[in-house]
Design a binder for these strands. Structure first.
Lengths: 234, 234
DNA sequence: TGACAGCCGCTGGCATGCAAGATGTTGCCA
DNA sequence: TGGCAACATCTTGCATGCCAGCGGCTGTCA
């Protein structure tokens, strides 16, 4: 089962940062709802009710309400007074908007690299390994393993840049992107292998301290993935 | 009195979007707290209590709690379980981090302009007028008028780009920036006049459809303001 | 005098209850 | 048959209450 808290929950105001704690009811509700929002089990346009979710989780409405508030702040939900919580519809331009925002951040961070960074290299190498393993194991069920590792790879580039504000924004972008790609992502083994190869090239450029080249690779890599997804959505 | 909801509250999950409504208690609490967070009356490092604020506003803890949650999601507050809400300390690098993020977005949007845009021109002209009036009236008390108009000016450039995700992120950045500049912003009339002149140049470049030039102007304008603020903080 | 154990008061977490807005439905009347 | 008013029922908004952590204070003992 995909876990929301894999890569995403380091983001922003996500509750439950401090791990090891009885896990508050709010956190439970937040994770539960976010997971469903991201993987599409709560489809865009659906109206959620606090009551229903509270009953389902065996908690009261209060923490559910708090979770909804947080999710609204992340742009995943829209709260209508005394009506309910609407799963934010995906606008026709959302995928494009997200790509632009993401590219802006990620390319900037990649391009800012001017010297090799052992910590970054190690992080990238590790996620690429994870991607290869995911590809090898590919039993369809495990497909999300690749998704997780992919997120980690790209995130590492942003994290390495060391601007927590950008990192936070970036995390939020990827959450929303994940929701879109959950709709339709027909990825063949060949495509995934191709992605991994591109990751390798990016890592190599960064390892050589060549931010400019990394930046260009990141741009074409992301645009290609975007085009692919666009095709799948149609 | 400076109003939080001037430029900022169009941002993200700010409650109370739909105006004309009895104004929910949550919104009241949110605005009240945010205003104080941004103008420094709730200084960084201070511990806030739900009870206290609730008493002060004559409402119950519930809506205050919700407001705190939202403010945490915006990065203005840090909630510690059973301890209280800490006004997020301003990290030593925060101003730099914000500038970088803001510049990234704003320069990108300015640079993307390739043709004159009457709507944008009108918006820019209007805020520049407002800035001039603020300068003329300058009674110190009205100084925030300039701040508001300044925000509108820069925001208009981002809005014109038409990517709601970027706009939203940008709004959040400016909120946080406002909190920092509330600390110390020694701006002389001369400086303000200088800013207005620079705004005029930027507007002119955009009006001519010359995004590249506007981009450069925006960059140097923001960096100059940043340096100035840095000096004031020391 | 210093260190530590225990207590006390304060904090927020969450369940609950009540009230009011919004909606869809029903039944009356023209 | 079409329009509208009153109702039933859903929703959330918010107040309240109880309880469990957490910290500071105090008193005791070495």
């Amino acid at each position: 089962m995909p876990s929301v808290s894999q890569a995403g929950s380091r983001a922003a105001g996500s509750p439950g940062r401090d791990a090891r704690r009885p896990v508050s009811a709010t956190t439970t509700a937040y994770r539960h709802a976010k997971e469903r929002l991201l993987d599409g089990r709560f489809p865009a346009g659906q109206l959620l009710s606090e009551n229903e979710l509270a009953r389902e989780l065996g908690i009261s409405r209060t923490p559910v309400r708090e979770a909804f508030l947080l999710l609204e702040a992340e742009g995943l939900l829209e709260l209508y007074p005394r009506r309910g919580a609407l799963v934010t519809p995906i606008s026709p331009t959302e995928a494009d908007d997200l790509l632009e925002a993401r590219l802006l951040t990620e390319a900037h961070c990649a391009g800012a690299v001017t010297a090799p960074d052992p910590a970054l290299d190690a992080a990238l190498a590790e996620t690429i390994d994870a991607q290869r393993r995911a590809l090898a194991d590919d039993d369809r069920v495990e497909s999300h393993l690749f998704t997780v590792a992919d997120r980690e790879f790209h995130r590492a580039i942003v994290v390495a840049h060391g601007n927590p504000i950008l990192t936070r924004q970036y995390d939020a972008l990827r959450d929303r992107q994940q929701r879109i790609s959950a709709l339709a992502t027909a990825r063949s083994r060949e495509r995934i292998a191709q992605f991994i190869a591109e990751h390798g090239e990016i890592a190599a450029a960064l390892g050589a301290g060549d931010g400019q080249r990394a930046r260009e690779l990141v741009e074409s890599h992301l645009r290609a993935a975007h085009e692919l997804a666009r095709g799948a959505r149609r």
